[in-house]
Amino acid sequence: MKADNPLLAVLALAAGLLFLSPVLYSIWMSFQTVDAYYTGTVDFTLENYQAAIGQYNFARYLLNSVIVSGAVTLIGLAVATMAAFAFARYDFPGGNVMFGATVATLMIPSHITLIPNYLTLAKAGLLDSYAGLILPAISNGFAAFFLRQYIRGIPRALDEAAYMDGANALQVLWRVIVPIAKPAILSMGLYIFISEWNNYIWPLVAIGREDMYTLQVGLARLYRVNPGEDVIDWPLVMAASTITILPVLLGFLLVERHLVRGIMMGAVK
């Protein structure tokens, strides 16, 4: 690693800290008692987290978010990889139309589907359920489009060899394509997971029962109903906010490079 001009380095670090200061301070605040916060003193406590997790049910919201984002990622990746394989390796009647229809979803604002999807899932009795949160989120062509570009870059000779060995299409996909495309699939998986984790408007519409809230909806509501009898209990809200941010934050620190690469590849094909 190259050395930096120390002065510049210090300045840059200060700028970075300043940039993130609202979030950093909110995390600090979440460990303070509400009295300490309002009187400007320092008094460490874990009570805010206890209250958020217990009384305000954020443990449940966390579980809901994990289940929903996890399922959307797994199912989304599975269907996208299969479709991407079909689009990349087969020339079949209607294939262009199908691929076009898939790519077009990138341009279609999801908001146009809000009311009809609400009604569809209402009729199916799937509102207030995990399925109701998961199913509409699979309807996104981005991963398939992205993976199809990637798979096209994999030499066909590799498939060929596997077919010669008597493998069928699914086996080729699973044994040849997936291992090679793993970095792309992982990047896409992260992208889907984070998008779904942060999804707000659909759970807001589709979920009425408190115990089915995702973290996003639960946090927005906690902030809106103003916990605390007279003054808003900011430390409690910030504890809930930190719970909402933290899983993605930790994941981000672990896999930043994959993620950044995924976004770069997705943007500049």
Binding site: Y118, L119, L121, A122, K123, G125, L127, D128, V205, G208
Partner: peptide, 11 residues
């Protein structure tokens, strides 16, 4: 709002 939204959903 919640009641009105609940009607088509039967909830």
């Amino acid at each position: 709002a919640k009641l009105q939204a609940a009607i088509p959903a039967n909830r």
